[in-house]
Structures are given as structure tokens and as C-alpha cells.
């Protein structure tokens, strides 16, 4: 190295420390410097075009704009920002337009046509999944199964309170439902409620005290309880009243399936008879568009297979 230095084969920066400690100079190519200047220039142009510098509580807006239609259908032009650009893309972008066209097709098709067309079904389901998550999942749970039995109906099982055809589901979603069962604690004494509970549990094949069930049947089918008016004499329920089918394995209010002991089961059922039921699902026709309700109907129908 010393030789190279003496021969001036190597350029040094000219700095010297401790007398003889020198720094070699391996110069960068100058285009590298120009590339740096070019990136500085790029930044300057960017500042002019896009939002860049904070000024107090405001910022420089830039010259670029994004234009979209707001909810009232008015055209809005504002300084470029990613949210506005996103809305613009969703309104005018090629894929968004394609989606819109397909949505038109689905909205013109009947439920029967949709359910026979796997592509339309899949399309409706993917869109409705989002609508469901935004509007319905708060009560019915993501995927249609509420986390706690009793509060809200499970949409995944094959048991329907108000009917599971496309038409019935659509009606339920758009108009809402009020589920009501009177509190029988006011007209029946504790013993009668207990007998009724035994009878009701027996309807769906649970092992009960036959003597109590016998007495319960009289209350259920007679004028005293009058349960058969809504639940029918066979106990299968009525869609028009939203009355539950008591003969199947599904319990939408009392968590009977979660209990092993007859005593606990009776206790839960008695509580329902005693206090009655008051549940309400709001109607969505004012909050959701027609097509959204249609998509949701297809989705809810598909969760269980419908009726």
C-alpha cells in the first residue's frame, strides 16, 4: 500500500492523521449523485401534487384531486386523499363496474334462479357476508350462531320460528319480527308450571315424570294454559305466530341441551313459561337497500339450507 501511495496509484482524500494515516478515496460514480438529485426533484413535485406538509392544524392539500359521488348523488371534488381515491375507484374502477353489472343481474333474478346458479349464489354470499357482519352479527353472531343460547335465534340450524323459505326470510329481514309469549306465571301456579315443563320436555323425547306430564298435557291442550293456540296441539308451533316447535331437539330460549339433569332442564323451561318471552328484531327496509336485503336473504337461506 505504501508503494501504491508513493506511486500515486491510489488517490487519497488528502486527510492525514497522526502524520501518516491517510484515507483512500474511492469516488462514487457521479450518476449516483444525479440519481440523488433526481429523487429530491421527485419529492418536490410530489409536494406540489399531493398532501404533504402540516401547517398548524391544517396541511398543504396538493393539486391532485379525487372526484366521486356522495350519498346524495352530488359530485364532490376534493384534494387527493386515499379515502376519496378509494371511493372514486369503487364508483368508477373497472372491477367495481363489473361488480355492479353482476349485481344488476342478481337483482333481476328470482330467488329460485339464484339458488340454482352456483355462481350467483357464491357472489351473493360473498357480498352478503359483509352486510351481515355489519348489521346482523351483533345479535346473531358471525356466521349466524349467537354465542349464548336463548338471546337470539341461531340461523345455522334447520329450525325456523317464522319460516325458512326465501319469501319468509325476506319478510322477516325487511319488516322485522316481534316474538312474544305471555308470562304464564300470572295465571298458573308453580305446580302447574312445573307440570307444563315436564309435558313440554316430554314432547321432544326427554325423560320426564309421566304423571306430571299427564297433568301438564291437560293444561297445554286445555283452556287453562291455552298453549296449543300458538304451539298447536301437536306442539309443532306456528310460523304465523313465531311460535317454536316444541317437539324437535332445538331449544332457542332455554338452554335445555346444555343440561344433563332433569331438574335443571325443568327449571329452565319453567322459567320461560313463568316469565314469557319478549324478543324483537327490527325491520331493516329503511336501513338497507332492497338489493342488500335480497343478498342477505340468499345468505341466511344458505347458512342452513333453508326450507
Amino acid at each position: 500500500m505504501a508503494e501504491q501511495l508513493q506511486n500515486k496509484a491510489v488517490q487519497t482524500t488528502g486527510h492525514a492523521w497522526d502524520g501518516d494515516l491517510q484515507e483512500f478515496n474511492n469516488p462514487l460514480p457521479s450518476w449516483w449523485l444525479w440519481a440523488f438529485y433526481a429523487s429530491v426533484l421527485f419529492a418536490l413535485v410530489y409536494w406540489v401534487l399531493f398532501p404533504a406538509w402540516p401547517i398548524g392544524s391544517d396541511y398543504t392539500k396538493g393539486l391532485a384531486t379525487a372526484t366521486f359521488k356522495n350519498d346524495q348523488g352530488e359530485e364532490v371534488t376534493m384534494g387527493w386523499n386515499s379515502r376519496a381515491a378509494f371511493i372514486q375507484e369503487m364508483q368508477e374502477g373497472g372491477d367495481a363496474l363489473k361488480q355492479k353489472a353482476y349485481l344488476q343481474k342478481v337483482s333481476a333474478a328470482s330467488y329460485d334462479e339464484i339458488s340454482r346458479d352456483p355462481e350467483m349464489t357464491a357472489f351473493a354470499e360473498s357480498l352478503a357476508k359483509v352486510v351481515f357482519a355489519d348489521n346482523c352479527a351483533a345479535c346473531h353472531g358471525i356466521g349466524g350462531t349467537p354465542p349464548i343460547v336463548g338471546l337470539y335465534p341461531n340461523l345455522r340450524d334447520d329450525d325456523w320460528l317464522w319460516g325458512g323459505t326465501f319469501g319468509q326470510i325476506e319478510h322477516t329481514i325487511s319488516q322485522g319480527r316481534i316474538g312474544f309469549m305471555p308470562a304464564f306465571g300470572k295465571v298458573l301456579d308453580t305446580g302447574q308450571v312445573d307440570q307444563l315443563a315436564h309435558y313440554v320436555l316430554g314432547l321432544s323425547g326427554h325423560e320426564v315424570d309421566p304423571a306430571k306430564a299427564k297433568l301438564g298435557e291437560v293444561i297445554f291442550q286445555g283452556e287453562e294454559g291455552g298453549c296449543h293456540y300458538c304451539h298447536t296441539q301437536s306442539g309443532k308451533g306456528l310460523y304465523s305466530q313465531g311460535a317454536a316447535n316444541l317437539t324437535d331437539a332445538i331449544w332457542t330460549v332455554a338452554d335445555v341441551t346444555g343440561q344433563n339433569d332433569l331438574k335443571d332442564k325443568v327449571k329452565l323451561v319453567s322459567q320461560v313459561i313463568d316469565e314469557g318471552i319478549q324478543r324483537e328484531m327490527p325491520g331493516w327496509s329503511k336501513r338497507l337497500s332492497e338489493i342488500e336485503i335480497k343478498l342477505l336473504t340468499v345468505y341466511v337461506h344458505s347458512l342452513s339450507g333453508g326450507e
Partner: peptide, 16 residues
């Protein structure tokens, strides 16, 4: 497999 919910009881006592 759909995992939310992972299963559901049906009216005839079967699991789906």
C-alpha cells in the same frame, strides 16, 4: 371446514 360456528344441532338431534 366452516369454523364459525364449527357445528350446529339440528331439529332431529343430528349435528351439522
Amino acid at each position: 371446514q366452516v369454523r364459525q360456528p364449527i357445528f350446529v344441532r339440528l331439529s332431529d338431534g343430528r349435528v351439522q
